[in-house]
């Protein structure tokens, strides 16, 4: 499977957003967190079920600066790209094989 020009531009845009996100993104609470903080009882309920390796989109050993954030989000973006294409490929594999034979 070849990536055509549009796809390459798309990947470049995604990676650029990933790289810039830690610098440009607002660190204010999001809509749900902000709503939760209006209700004192809700705010304390958060209880992570597992420890994520890159919590809050940073690499813990690199601190929480923009570089750490950029690496974490870049890794995530590449992971999502490969995983989605991999799963898509896997799901289509049988049909594509039938069609080409």
């Amino acid at each position: 499977m070849k990536l055509d020009r549009t796809m390459k531009i798309g990947i470049a845009i995604a990676l650029a957003i990933a790289l810039l996100a830690p610098v440009l993104a607002s660190s204010n609470p999001d809509g749900l967190e902000s709503s939760a903080s209006s209700f004192p009882s809700a705010d304390e309920k958060e209880q992570p079920a597992l420890e994520a390796p890159m919590p809050d989109y940073v690499i813990p050993s690199l601190g929480d600066g923009p570089l750490s954030g950029a690496i974490a989000i870049l890794l995530g973006t590449v992971l999502v790209l490969l995983l989605t294409m991999g799963v898509g490929r896997f799901l289509a594999a049988k049909r594509l094989k039938d069609e080409s034979s």
């Binding site: 796809m7 990933a18 490929r89």
Partner: peptide, 21 residues
């Protein structure tokens, strides 16, 4: 469609990490 799906997913993941005030 496989690359299109992958690129859209990657773009959506990245943009979801970019909170706008």
């Amino acid at each position: 469609k496989i690359p299109l799906l992958g690129v859209l997913a990657a773009g959506i993941f990245a943009i979801q990490a970019m909170n706008v005030p």
